[in-house]
């Protein structure tokens, strides 16, 4: 179980790091999302123990699983959710600013600021 989790975390982190190195901003955001989820899984793994649900009244004599990591990971997910929303908003602003600039000046690379057309990105 520990091994499987470690593998999943490393694969997620690896894919995230790979995506992060791309020039495309949306892929970069994807990389950040994968990496932050790898971190969330890592938190879960830090308190991995099998047992009953930790809800009062506690069953006597039985192992209960660690409730703290659940609280931590929930908080981390919420924070990650907020930061990813900010990141996406910022990417969108960069995109529109660059689009305006490209329309004004003519884009020197001949590409659109981000490789996908806007319709597909928003609809996905």
């Amino acid at each position: 179980m520990i091994l499987a989790l470690a593998l999943v975390i490393s694969v997620l982190f690896g894919c995230g790091a790979f995506l992060l190195l791309k020039r495309d901003l949306i892929r970069m955001a994807g990389g950040i999302i994968l990496i932050s989820n790898a971190a969330n899984l890592f938190i879960v793994s830090a308190g991995l123990s099998r047992g009953r649900e930790p809800i009062y009244p506690l069953p006597a004599g039985e192992r209960i699983s660690d409730p703290v990591v659940q609280a931590l990971v929930l908080t981390a997910i919420v924070i990650g959710f907020g930061t990813v929303a900010v990141l996406l908003g910022m990417i969108y602003r960069t995109y529109t600013a660059r689009l305006a600039k490209a329309v004004d000046e003519g884009d020197e690379t001949g590409r659109t600021p981000m490789s996908m057309p806007p319709e597909d990105r928003v609809a996905d």
Binding site: G82, A85, L88, G89, Y92, T96, P118, V122
Partner: peptide, 17 residues
């Protein structure tokens, strides 16, 4: 409120474009 307003910020601009 946060989800809907983020959606609104991106969506409204997209709509006007």
């Amino acid at each position: 409120g946060f989800i809907v307003s983020v959606l609104g910020t991106i969506g409204n601009r997209y709509g006007s474009e």
